[in-house]
Amino acid sequence: MSKIDSEISKIKFTCKDVRVAYSGKEALHGINMAIDDRGVTAFIGPSGCGKSSFLRVFNRMNDTIAGCTVTGEVYMDGQDIYAPSLDPVLLRARVGMVFQKPNPFPKSIYDNVAYGPRIHGLASNKAELDHIVEKSLQRAGLWEEVKDRLKDSGTGLSGGQQQRLVIARAIAVSPEVILMDEPASALDPIATARLEELIEELSQKYCIVIVTHSMAQAARISQRTAFFHMGDLVEYGLTTNIFTNPADPRTQDYITGRTG
């Protein structure tokens, strides 16, 4: 495990010997790492290296997959999120997630964003809800495009807009962390660029962990990068260090395009 200078910022997550197995087959072999409270942390690595499985550890989305088991300890702000007393529903309210393919609900744009605040009871009246929806859409950089058609279906938007809608939907719940699982993989370059700008903005306020396939993207937006390979965390450190001066030959091979 690389040394992280925790003077820069607080630590949000601490993982100790985290293992993920699907129907008994281990996909992640004991990961130890700490993730900063602010800024963007990127997970990179070849397909099937376990980076997405690891991302789903932080909001316990692995619980929803039949046969998936997670062992080890994960602390969020010092609290064990795999403790039996911990409520995954509450955890997921605090840790939002954005998926690979935009998945707006088959509802109106407004209802998509209002869904989270409604189930969590974050607004006590319509005006408050309107305010949350507007603010979230503004933060996601979508407000100007959709403010006149909030009643239209969310599935009618373009791919890039859908992904920003989904981000707005996540922000509306007031999370502390936003997990992003290859959020730009289904988007065209222009939409990707907009999304990256948005991620940078959001990183001022939220802890963002992003899985990405594109090393260029990791280099552009992240402060820290973790390189995974075949279920192991190979290298973790400041993005600039990883890309200019990788310590491990596997990292070197991957970022220079020899594997992956």
């Binding site: 997921r92 998926f99 998945n103 609900f105 869904y115």
Partner: peptide
């Protein structure tokens, strides 16, 4: 699609909320 359910769970919805408000609506 499962992605609808995932989206809802990731927002901290319970199973019944996901069923009645997202899956059922869809």
């Amino acid at each position: 699609p499962q992605s609808m359910r995932d989206g809802s769970y990731a927002l901290g919805a319970t199973k019944s909320e996901t069923m009645t408000k997202v899956v059922f609506a869809g």
